[in-house]
Simulated scan of single mutants.
Amino acid sequence: MSYFISFEGIEGCGKTTQIKLAARFLRKWRLPVMTTEEPGGSPLGKRIRKLLLKRGPFDICDEAETLLFLAARAQHIREVIRPALVRGNWILCDRFSDATMVYQGLVRGIDATWIRTLDEFATSSLKPHLTFLFDLPAETGIRRALQRMSGVPEKAREDRFEQEGLIFHEKIRKGYLSLARQEPDRFRVIDATGDVASISLEVCRHLKAFLSADGG
């Protein structure tokens, strides 16, 4: 049986590190695991990622930003995720549709119904079986994200969203928590203020419960 698990949260929440640790945990159970990310995950997605996440000499309007994310997702689904699910892989994805609903819908102000309709078209209505939301104060996340970026050469930095103001990131956090309240069966909200090891233990505890419920 294959499963699709997404990892969400504000910038600097540590989800990328936790994906790697979760993949290691699942492989100990001899499960076929694939990690991927959005935007990205496919050759086209990587090209779109550069447009979206790196600061350039041009502006991207909110509507174009939304459509670019959805275009990357459509390619990701058809080229990577769907085939992996057919093969029986467990897929751990760094961001998915919830990110679009929060960043472009709740914060940018793009109509939520319009986003849901186009996202269903892009994904063929695929939703994660389980979503981890790594929650921490916005100021903590931004501080971590900027510290991480400080060691990256300027030309290679993917920091367009990190450069948004604190109010923007506080809205992102509230948006994610709102989605989690709407779908408590799918979301697992993780306190991301602790150290990497303790957060990983919490994630693995939920994964083990998920495996047990599935009969694994």
Rank of each mutant, 00 (worst) to 15 (best):
R143G: 06
A180I: 11
L146K: 10
C13L: 03
G9F: 02
K174F: 00
A64T: 08
R78F: 13
I115F: 03
A197Y: 04
D191S: 08
T113N: 12
A84W: 01
A23G: 12
C204H: 12
E170S: 12
R188L: 12
E158M: 08
E139V: 07
R30P: 03
G40V: 08
A23R: 07
A122V: 03
W114G: 06
F4M: 13
A84M: 12
L126G: 14
R87K: 04
L92S: 02
I48W: 09
D159V: 01
L92E: 10
E202W: 13
L177E: 07
F210S: 04
I167G: 13
R24N: 15
H76Y: 15
F121G: 12
F96E: 11
A180E: 11
I199M: 05
G215I: 01
M149K: 05
I172K: 03
Q104S: 03
L85D: 14
I167C: 13
L133F: 08
I115S: 07
P43Q: 12
R157C: 06
L26Q: 05
L85S: 11
T66P: 07
L85R: 10
T35V: 10
G56E: 12
I91Q: 10
I5E: 02
L146H: 00
D94V: 05
A122C: 10
G194L: 05
K15C: 03
S97W: 11
M101D: 06
I115Y: 03
S150K: 04
W90A: 01
R87M: 02
R78Q: 14
S198H: 11
R78Y: 14
R116P: 00
R144F: 05
D94T: 09
I60Y: 07
T193F: 00
K208P: 06
R205S: 09
I142R: 06
E65A: 01
Q163V: 01
M34K: 06
P43T: 10
V80R: 04
I115A: 04
I10Y: 06
S6V: 01
S42I: 08
A209Y: 03
R49E: 15
G165T: 05
G216A: 14
L166M: 15
G215V: 09
Q147A: 14
F58D: 08
V102W: 07
T123E: 13
I60N: 11
F58N: 09
I19F: 02
R27Q: 05
I10M: 13
W90G: 05
Y176E: 09
F134V: 00
L52M: 14
S2R: 13
F121L: 12
I60P: 05
P39L: 15
S198Y: 13
M34I: 06
E63R: 10
T140R: 02
A71Q: 14
E120N: 11
S200P: 10
F69C: 10
I77C: 14
A72Y: 15
E38F: 14
A99Y: 02
M101N: 05
T100C: 11
S125F: 09
R143A: 00
D98V: 06
R47V: 15
V102R: 12
P57V: 12
R186V: 04
L44G: 14
I5W: 00
L44A: 15
G40F: 10
I172R: 04
E11K: 02
